[in-house]
Amino acid sequence: MKSALAASGMDEFADLNPDAYTMKFWEAAREHRLVIPECNKCGTFHMPPTGFCHECTSQDLKFTEVPGTGEIYTFTIARHAVIPMLQAVVPYVIAVIAIDGAPGVRMVGNMIDCDMEKLQIGDKVKVVFDDVNEEVTIPRFTLA
């Protein structure tokens, strides 16, 4: 389903430029699964997906499905439209989410369907898969 945020104009920014490493993330998102790269050698997670584990430099990596829950690590409320196209979109929340099941990994995502004025660091969240168009699904978050 497409979110109200996307419908207000955020969907204009969902053009993706995936490479061999990030493609699997976006394919999984399209299937409404959240996957994070994990090192088969040392178990370290990383984001965004690259060809290497930053801990041990191994290229033996896999994508591990995580529960899709997490907590707000920090966030901002964008109240000013930095380009005119965003005037119908503001205010919106850009949060940094610590992802459960992938220690040390965070994702940048919008908090949607919640009272943005009451958000706090530490709030528990869950992923919402936003099908912004016929090809792209962007993970966003809402309160758990």
Binding site: I94, V96, I138
Partner: peptide, 22 residues
């Protein structure tokens, strides 16, 4: 956008100020 910034830009994180606010 780049493969890396695909994890940032679809959320409308566009300006240095929004980034430093975090």
């Amino acid at each position: 956008s780049t493969p890396q910034m695909d994890f940032v830009l679809p959320s409308g994180l566009f300006s240095p100020g929004q980034m430093m606010s975090q």
